[in-house]
Design a protein around this nucleic acid. Sequence first.
DNA 1: GTCTATATAATGATAGAC
DNA 2: GTCTATCATTATATAGAC
Lengths: 194, 194
Amino acid sequence: MKNSSTKEDIIFNADQLFYEQGYEKTSFADIASKVNISKGNFYHHFKTKDDLLKAVIEYRLNNTEKMLMDWQIKGKTPTERIQSFIKILIRNRKKIKLYGCPVGTLSSELNKLEHSSKKEANRLFDLFRDWLKVQFLELGHQEDADRLAMHILARSQGVAVLANAYQDETFVDYEVDLLVKWVDNLNNLTKVKV
Amino acid sequence: MKNSSTKEDIIFNADQLFYEQGYEKTSFADIASKVNISKGNFYHHFKTKDDLLKAVIEYRLNNTEKMLMDWQIKGKTPTERIQSFIKILIRNRKKIKLYGCPVGTLSSELNKLEHSSKKEANRLFDLFRDWLKVQFLELGHQEDADRLAMHILARSQGVAVLANAYQDETFVDYEVDLLVKWVDNLNNLTKVKV
DNA sequence: GTCTATATAATGATAGAC
DNA sequence: GTCTATCATTATATAGAC
């Protein structure tokens, strides 16, 4: 495990650079200089740049899974858990303002590149989608749980795109309020139904 | 005007390629082959690639302005006009599914590249934002016309990102329905108020 | 495992003939 | 205005010494 530290360093820094600059724009030279290794050393750990991307996506998938499990434990009700998701826009708004959503922007880029890893990158969306769906199912939305999950995902993506375009953090706050109210409203309707 | 045809050809094809593949990924070779000119000829019309990007953005700005003026004339009420905007998601859903929103994806890419033209690219958002704001003002939303404009812009962007990620056109239809209902509801509330 | 040196291909860009 | 070279630079990737 000791000698895997450089590999982890590469993944960690590539993850950041891919987010901040985009995958295409980020060169091995960029990463090598940030990790403080030579470009040659690189290829001992990853055969190609695509290979590195795969590792970064896997890293992100793991981190996301951990985060979702954490939310699952800490939120006492589905509504509370959904709000953990919504509030991520607030928690990360500084980075979202600067670089957009890491999931959405990578997806957009890889889709345009027709990149072989685009499917894997979109699995990041699946993690959120499936997790949200579970919450809506618990709230009693048997019929449209997936639709509601997609809706809330789309709303979040839209907020990220515009916060990034306008470099505007306060816009995030306002839209998050709207989303929270939307969830509360859903919850109330459900309670009335039941 | 006759000899400007090649220049226009370049802009027209670059516009498409920047949308489909992204700005960074699209090379002069790509464009030259599509326009059927040599790479050398290129530099007679544009000094640099950045220069070409500026021309493409200007081209898009002009087209967008024309489209908005057209909607302004053809829509008889603000609600009808806002729906022209929303329905663009339906009209362009095939391309949105494949490449996302041309405005949003260019904005995201240029923001990550810290490109000198990012401000100009974001003016595309401004055109829609200002136009939508006018409609909401006419609907009587003096206080929050801009907020409503941003909200509807964000919703549209979110739909585009997810339709692209999931290569799903039907999702667009569903979200467009929700948006239309949202506008109708606003309109009714306004009428009641007045 | 890490380095230096290098191969190779593609990119944006230029020079100059026609 | 368009073409055919060609250049300089950068990118991914490899070879081989340590």
